[in-house]
Every structure is written in C-alpha cells, then in structure tokens.
Design a protein around this nucleic acid. Structure first.
Length: 945
RNA sequence: GGGCCUGUAGCUCAGCUGGUUAGAGCACUGUGUUGAUAACGCAGGGGUCACAGGUUCGAGUCCUGUCAGGCCCA
C-alpha cells in the first residue's frame, strides 16, 4: 500500500508551468447567497452582543447621539421605514468606528387612533367596556406590533438596543411627557378654547379624517343679504352684503362675512331697488338673474381688503354683529364672493374668525339639535330640518334673495353612514403664539441637511396657529387636568407633576381607574370647590405630544443619551410632525431645540417617479427584497440615490444596484485571493520603498479614504456610492488589478515587486472593507473572516482607516495623470491593431512610442515600468523626431504597434527574445528561469510536463 | 389655492460663483481574453440639459411662466 501511494504521488509531482505561478487563492465565494447568509450572520451579531461590545469599547469617547424618531406601531414595514432605519444604521455604525460613543435606542409611537381602529376592526366595541379595559386591549395590540416590527427592522441589518427600546406607552415615558406638559402649563402656555371638529351627531362623537367617507348629496343653498351697520365711510347703511351658504342652520351662529382681499367687489343698485348690494364683480352676471335683477347700476368698486372690518347686522339677532374679514380661502368658483362665516361650524371660518377675534358660537348640541342660543323658534329642532324656518326668518326681514339646490360631496360617518357636521367643541391648546419668536430663534441655531429644511420648518412655525393638544379619544396619555365644582379648570404644574409620579409608578391607566380625588395630592383644596369635590378631564393628548416629548422621555432619562441630540433624522413629512412638535415642547420647556442637526429624507417613488401605494400596486416590500436579493442590495440602494429628495425604486433599479454589488464583491474577492499568502505585519513594504505604480495607487487609495470619510461626515451618502463605484471600476479593476496580474502571479512569491503590490492590496482591502461596513455590514464581516491577521472578532469592532500623510504628491500625481492619458492613447492604438488582426491580446504587441521631450521627462521622473503598465510584451521608446510613416498620432502621442518579437512563454504568456537562456528551461525567459530555479527546485530535476 | 422640493443620456447621479465640441458609473453594441471565468480588459454608439419666453456678447447654470411629479397644508 505504501509503495503504491508513493508511486502515485511521485507521478503527480510532474509540474505544470501554472504551478510556478502565484495564482490567487480564496474560498470567498463570488456570489454571496445573501438571502441565506444574512440571517445567520445577524444571529451571530446578537449572540455575541455586538452592539454592546462596540459601545463598551467606545465608553470613554465623546458622544454622538442620534435620536430615533418613533415609527407608529401598526402594520408591516415599508420601504420608507427601511430607508430610514438603514440610513440611521449607516450613521451610527460610522460614528462608532470613528471615535464616538454612538448608542442607538429605537423607539415606537404606540398610542393613537389607528390602533383603536384596529381593535374596532377586530370586533371590539369601545362603548361596551370600561375605558381601562379598552386601553389594555390597545396596549396588547401595540406591543404585538412592536415585536413584529422589531424583528423586521433587525432583518434590515440594523444594530441597536433592541431589547430596551423606548415606547410612548411606557410609564416612565408617560411620566416624562406629563412633566413636559407641566412645564408648559407652568409657563401659562396651556389654555382651553373651542375649535370645530368633524362631529358625528349620530354617534355623538368627534371623528378623525380617517373615520370619514364622502358621498354626493343635495343641499339647499341660500343667498341672502346683510345690512351694513358701520360702513367706515365707504358704504351707506342702506347697502347690503350678499352672502351665500350651503349650510342654512349655521346662519344662527353667523358672526362674519369673509372676502378675498384681492378680489374686486361692486356696489350695485338693481333697477327698481332702493337698496344697494355688494357682490364680487366677476360673479355679478352669474348671480343677478337668480335674484331677478335684469339691470343694475354700479355705484362703486372696492378691493376686498378695502372693506375690511366694516360691520353689518345679523339677519335677525339684534345682539349679534357680522364683521367683514379677508382671507385667502374665498374663491370665485360659486356663490357671491362673500362668505357667511360661523366660526363654530367650519374650519376656514374658525381660522379667519380667530384671526379677527370673533366669538365661537355653537348652536347645535351633540345630538344635532338646535340649542337655546339659536333662538326660541329654532330650539330643540333638528339642525337639518330648519332650512325652511331660516328662509322664513330671512324673508320676514326682507333679506332673502334666492335658494338653490346644489349637489356636492359631503362627509359622512363611516360607521353610521349618517352625514356629519363641523362643530366646535371645547379643546385644550398649547400656545405657540406666546413664544413663537423664541422657537424661531432656537431654530436658527440648528444645522439642516439639506439646507432648505430650515426655511421649510421656519415657515411652518411662523405660520402655524396654536396647537390643539386634546383629542376626544381613549388610547393615549390623559390630559392631567382637573375641574373644580364650579367648572374652573385646574392646570397646575405641581399637580401635574404629582400625577406624573403616579403614572411613573402605575402607568397611565391609573387615571381611568381612579377618581379625581384619588389622583389629586392628598388633602388638596381649591377655593372653587368648597365641598372638596373635583372631576377630571376625560380627553387625551394629541399623539404628536407623545412623540414630541421623546427628548424628555428618552434623551433625558437614559444615562447614555444626551439632550439635545446630535441628530434627528426622518422623512420630510416630519417637518410638520415630529420635528415640529419636538421643537415646540423643547423650546417651551428648556428654551432650546432638542436637536443640533436635522437631516430629512424624501419619499420613495416608483420607477416612473410616482408615489408608491398599495392601490397602484407599485409598492416594493423591503423584506421581499431581503428574501430575494439580500438586504445588502437594499442597503446599497440607499446610497445610490439622493435621499434629500424623493427617490425612485423599482425592480429594474434594484437589479442595477445588485450588479454594482457584484462588482464590488468580486473586487474584494480578487484582493483577498492575492493577499492570502501575505502577512501584513511581516511582509509590508514602506511607502518609500514601493514600486512607482504602487506608490501611485497608495496615493489614490489615500485620497479615496479622505473623500469617503468626508462624505460620511456630511451625510452625502450618494457621493460615497459614486466614488466607490468609480474607484472599484476605474482605479482598481480596469487599471491596478489588471496590470497587477503580471506582477502578483508571475514574480517570485517573496520578491520586492510582489510584496510591494501586496502591501497596497492589503491596505486597499482593509480600507474598502471598513469604509463599506456601515453600508454593507454583512459583506464586510464576511470579508473579515478571511483576514486572519486582523485580531478583532468583528470588522465592526475595528476603526475606520485614517488619512495618511504621504507628503506633497501633487507633482507626482500630475505626471501620473499625463502618463494615464498616454496609456489611454496606447489602448486606442492597440484596439486598432486588434481590429486589423495584427494582435489579439495586448501581450502579442510590441509598441513603439515616439516621445516629445516633455513626454520623456514624465516617464523619467516617474521611474515607472511603462511596459508593465501598458501590458505589452515589448515597449520601445524613441525620440519624436524618429517617427516614421507607420506611426500614428493618438491624442498627441505617436504610436506604432507591431507584433511582438520572439516567442511566447507558456508561463507568463508574454513574448520574449531570451527563451531558453537557462538551458534547463528552454521555454522560459531568463528572468522566469531564475524564479523557477529558486522557488520550485523540483522543476529543475523533474522538468515540466 | 399656499409653503418647500424636483425634472441633465435607457437607469442612478456629477455639473461650484453663467464661458471652449455637456461628464461618470451601470446598461447597450462590437471585440479580446479564458490564470478574478455564471468573471475580467479594450473600444464605441447614445443627451433639442421637461417646455416656452426673457436677461446677457454668451445659460444646463440667472429671472418669469407653463407642464409633470413629490411632501406638508388648505
């Protein structure tokens, strides 16, 4: 047996030329099988507590705190979530690898209407159970959603403190939120008012937009006149404003007439009329026939703004007055250009009314019946049944002009299918007006990415009204407000903090499970409650107040976090949302913005630039991408696009991204394969001792590191992609790695030329792996497993490459630029020769260059091996004056290409004129023979096959 | 209707303060290799810079308007 084995081995020793080459070797696969390997790799991260390990390693470093904006805990994650979380992960990973302690605490927004709706859908009836029970159901549902989304976010490769997220329903969060509310209350920013909401009389409840559906209905619209009371010298008191309404019952609460400031209004006297009427000039021809006006005389015209603050009489109520106002919502589409305005019954009406300080009159009760305030003849009647009565009243006063049936879209309660009305109900407000300038001043100190974000947020804060913070709902944080016996509201910071303490210990359900007395501090008295009786507010807070308090609920709670945060990063819809509410509460409480930097992202669109929606069927699920292509592809996609704007995504686009991924992956593989016999610590060659082309590439790499880091620092992620792909394709693949084969494969394993190049290979590999890690963590970690000399267990535990000081390389690089132009010229010449079938591959060519003095100087100064860099077998350099007819000019370089002289070596596949110089190796060049003799002595005795 | 933003090759993006024939990578075509091989090299084709006016000696780059698209309001 032994003999036999020996015999076989001996026969196998018979060498091939290939065996004397250093062909690259690696098991790093060309294809990543990402959908399969990513989850395994992620499991490893969590088994090894990678997130915490990195933080522990950074414990003493300066903090960088990205504060997570809480996604809503409902539904499957979509591309927007993925983009947001991935970008955050990129930033956090980068910061942790560049000298910062950068924790990431994910959060969820867990209160609010959509969750209540899910319960309703699931068949629960809110009104059939106590509030606390309903809230427990909501809580269970929210926690389930959090668990589901958490798993999905982890699948994106996002590293964070997933075991300790913040949830807006956590008692400590709710307590912190109440304390923010308390601070604002203490400063007098919280007040009670009234505001119209969608009111469903059929379910006796306020509704949200989501609970409304629209149907076409027929309504009776009325035209009637309001007699001028104080015409401010412009209008006589026998002049009448002609107004229009589609909701006759609201005339009972009419307090104003709204005009368009820039529209022209005519004062006209119809033929046979003593009275004068004001109508928008443009609409006069349309409305006159309705009023039976055949002819009229125009007495004057005014702009809407000129008539501002003139007053008129209410049609029948002597106590009331109608104020002329101006607002942009008035249109000339229909009516008269003068809009009857009842601030208690419409949003536009409310808005313009509050600007002019009109009272808010509500003449309909919660069941839809007119109140006493509407007047004795209306009281107790259903709002929709009084149109005839209103017409009668107007006719009695000789103010009625016309009625008209109109068909229009009208909101309905989606559950009861009954129409709804706008109706003002008591609401709690947070004043913005009182400290608007302070907010704007603090906003000015924030850095915005992109810069226009500042303008956008600034305009919103500048133009927004006070914040309605109450909601007539159940699933949320209760408003910690009490009422005394006479109805006086008790909004007291100390009491609020007392309630906060209770919430911190018991959770906010405590509010619903206990009486006002139990919730108030022991022994609390108030002059408005002589009998010591109190009631509590039943409304809850707007969920934007929840998330808007996260700087207090999270940043100021957790020791590893900081307030203000270094960075908030969300979609551009959050200028209205979280960016906005967080800013208000933070400035109100502590006089500063909760963030130093604000980064906003656009929305994902389909391949055609249209919005993604389920109904259009153009959505792409991030989890599907993960399962089909790998999450690395989606992560890479996030840096191919300009995230400051809206971003197109489609299967085709992702396909293109995956091609880029493969290119990067293959390049890493090539570098791995050709450094597998290289030990950086032992074999590295110093910059000064490197070959000219290796020095050149070292500089390219150094510039690359510098630029990529700058792009990370400035959150310019698509610059990273551009630069990366260019570096990999142009600098590495098409140039350096291409010429490298003639060195790395062919030269002696330990030769200085080879070691010089391997040094640069290794540095490149290491730098690329680290620089890519924030974007492609799975791939980077995979590469890391093939780098036995790197001691840390994970690539993520290593530090980003730093920019080296290589001295002044500008002159050298200018020369290289000149040489690379010459190389391009030679490539064209070679291509022509190939087309002429003079050569096949470059190695079959002998090239002669006829150089100008300047070109010669470049080559001399660089001291490079031009033949190697041009990848030809022979290169002859001559003076430009020697150029003959055979040569051709390529972009200023005279070139002649001919077939290479001599014979081709089977080993390096180049042509040589000295084959067989070493008689032992008749087919090898002298240089090759030396290598083989020294490193493969067996070949001398055995020969080649 | 308002605030903010976008519209450059098939795709994703560069084009700074206006100045020679508008760039890159991918994709595409041709071709060479077969020692990065379900890979790699080389060369090449491809754009009325959304449209229409205007300012200027000169505009993708400034101004106005139109169209298309997005977010947030109304």
């Amino acid at each position: 047996m032994l003999h036999r084995t020996f015999f076989i081995q001996k026969e196998a020793v018979f060498m091939k030329y290939k065996d004397t080459l250093n062909l690259g070797k690696t098991k790093f696969p060309m294809r990543g099988s990402l959908p399969k390997t990513e989850p395994e790799r992620q499991a490893k991260w969590y088994q090894n507590n990678l997130y915490q390990q990195r933080l522990t390693q950074n414990e003493t470093k300066p903090h960088f705190n990205l504060h997570d904006g809480p996604p809503y805990a409902n539904g499957n994650i979509h591309l927007g979530h993925a983009l947001n979380k991935i970008t955050k992960d990129i930033i956090v990973r980068y910061k942790n690898m560049t000298g910062y302690y950068a924790p990431y605490v994910p959060g969820w927004d867990t209160h609010g209407l959509p969750i209540e709706q899910q319960l309703t859908k699931a068949g629960y009836d809110r009104k059939s159970m106590p509030k606390a029970q309903w809230r427990n159901l909501a809580k269970d549902y929210a926690l389930e959603q959090v668990d589901k989304q958490r798993e999905d976010f982890k699948r994106l490769g996002v590293l964070g403190d997933w075991e300790h997220p913040y949830l807006t329903l956590q008692p400590e969060f709710e307590a912190a939120q109440l304390r923010v509310f308390g601070k604002m209350a203490g400063k007098g920013y919280i007040y009670k008012g009234a505001k119209p909401v969608y009111w469903s009389w059929s379910s006796e409840s306020a509704l949200a937009e989501a609970e409304i559906e629209y149907h076409d209905i027929d309504s009776t619209s009325l035209f009637y006149a309001n007699r001028v009371k104080d015409g401010k010298g412009l209008l006589d008191d026998d002049t009448y404003f002609v107004v229009w309404t589609t909701t006759p019952f609201t005339v009972t609460a009419s307090r104003g007439i709204t005009l368009g400031p820039d529209f022209e209004y005519s004062v006209v006297q119809p033929a046979g009329e003593k009275r004068k009427f004001v109508v928008a000039t443009e609409l006069l021809p349309q409305v006159a026939p309705k009023f039976g006006w055949d002819a009229w005389e125009t007495l004057a015209t005014y702009k809407g703004q000129e008539l501002d603050k003139i007053t008129a009489y209410h049609p029948w109520d002597p106590e009331a007055e109608e104020l002329v106002m101006n607002a942009d919502h008035v249109t000339l589409d229909s009516g008269t250009g003068l809009v009857h305005t009842a601030p208690g019954f419409g949003e536009d009406d409310y808005n313009v009314g509050s600007k002019y300080h009109l009272p808010i009159i509500v003449t309909v009760d919660e069941k839809g019946y007119m109140t006493a305030e509407a007047g004795p003849e209306f009281e107790g009647k259903f709002y929709d049944d009084i149109t005839g009565l209103v017409i009668n009243k107007l006719q009695d006063a000789n103010l009625f002009l016309a009625k008209e049936k109109i068909t229009h879209s009208y909101p309905f309660d989606w559950r009861t299918k009954k129409p709804i009305i706008w109706r003002a109900v008591p609401q709690w407000f947070a004043s913005v007006e009182k400290f608007r300038q302070e907010i704007l001043d603090q906003l000015d100190k924030v850095n915005f990415y992109p810069g226009w974000g500042k303008k956008r947020l600034y305009n919103m804060i500048r133009d927004r009204g006070d914040w309605v913070i109450s909601r007539q709902r159940v699933w949320g944080v209760p408003l910690p407000i009490f009422y005394a016996e006479d109805g006086t509201a008790i909004v007291d910071e100390q009491i609020i903090n007392h309630v906060a303490q209770l919430f911190e210990e018991h959770g906010s359900n405590y509010w619903f499970e206990h009486s006002a007395k139990e919730l108030l501090p022991a022994g609390y008295t108030n002059e408005h409650s002589p009998n010591g009786e109190f009631t509590k507010e039943e409304d809850i807070m707007d969920v934007w107040f929840d998330s808007g308090s996260s700087w207090n609920g999270v940043l100021r709670q957790r020791p590893q976090l900081d307030y203000p945060a270094d960075l908030y990063l969300e979609g551009s819809d959050q200028y209205r949302g979280w960016f906005n509410s967080s800013l208000i509460t933070s400035v109100a409480s502590y006089g500063q913005a909760p963030y130093k930097n604000l980064l906003s992202q656009g929305f994902t669109l389909d391949g055609k630039g249209n919005k993604m929606s389920k109904s259009l069927g153009n959505t792409i699920s991030p989890l599907e991408v993960a399962d089909q292509m790998g999450i690395e592809i989606l992560r890479l996609w996030t840096i191919t696009v300009d995230t400051s704007q809206d971003m197109p995504v489609s299967k085709e686009i992702l396909k293109q991204v995956s091609e880029s991924y493969r290119k990067v992956r293959n390049t890493l593989r090539f570098l791995l394969a050709n450094t597998s016999d290289f030990n950086y610590e032992q074999d590295k060659v110093s910059f000064a001792d490197r070959q000219a082309h290796d020095q050149y590439f070292t500089v390219l790499l150094n510039d690359f590191v510098k630029e990529i880091r700058a792009s990370y620092d400035n959150y310019q992620f698509n610059d990273i992609f551009k630069r990366l792909i260019n570096f990999v394709n142009v600098d590495l693949s098409a140039f350096y790695l291409d010429i490298a084969k003639d060195v790395v494969y062919v030269e002696a394993p330990t030769s200085p030329q080879r070691r010089s190049m391997q040094t640069v290979f290794y540095e490149t590999l290491l730098a690329l792996t680290k620089l890519l890690l924030p974007v492609l963590p799975h791939t980077a970690e995979e590469v890391w497993e093939y780098l036995p000399n790197e001691t840390s267990d994970f690539a993520y535990l290593s530090e980003m490459p730093v920019v080296q000081d290589l001295g002044d390389t500008s002159a050298m690089m200018a020369d290289w630029q000149a040489f690379m132009k010459m190389r391009t010229a030679v490539n064209k010449a070679l291509e022509d020769a190939r087309e002429a079938e003079l050569i096949g591959k470059n190695a079959e060519a002998a090239v002669t260059l006829y150089l100008t003095q300047e070109q010669k100087d470049v080559l001399t100064r660089l001291g490079l091996n031009a033949r190697l860099l041009l990848m030809v077998s022979q290169l002859d350099l001559k003076d430009a004056s020697q150029a003959d007819e055979a040569s051709r000019d390529y972009d200023g370089l005279q070139v002649t290409v001919s077939h290479a002289r001599g014979k081709v070596s089977p080993r390096d596949r180049m042509y040589h004129e000295d084959l067989g110089a070493d008689s032992a190796f008749p087919e090898l060049s002298k240089h090759e023979a030396e290598i083989v003799r020294e490193f493969y002595p067996a070949a001398v005795s055995e020969g080649f096959e």
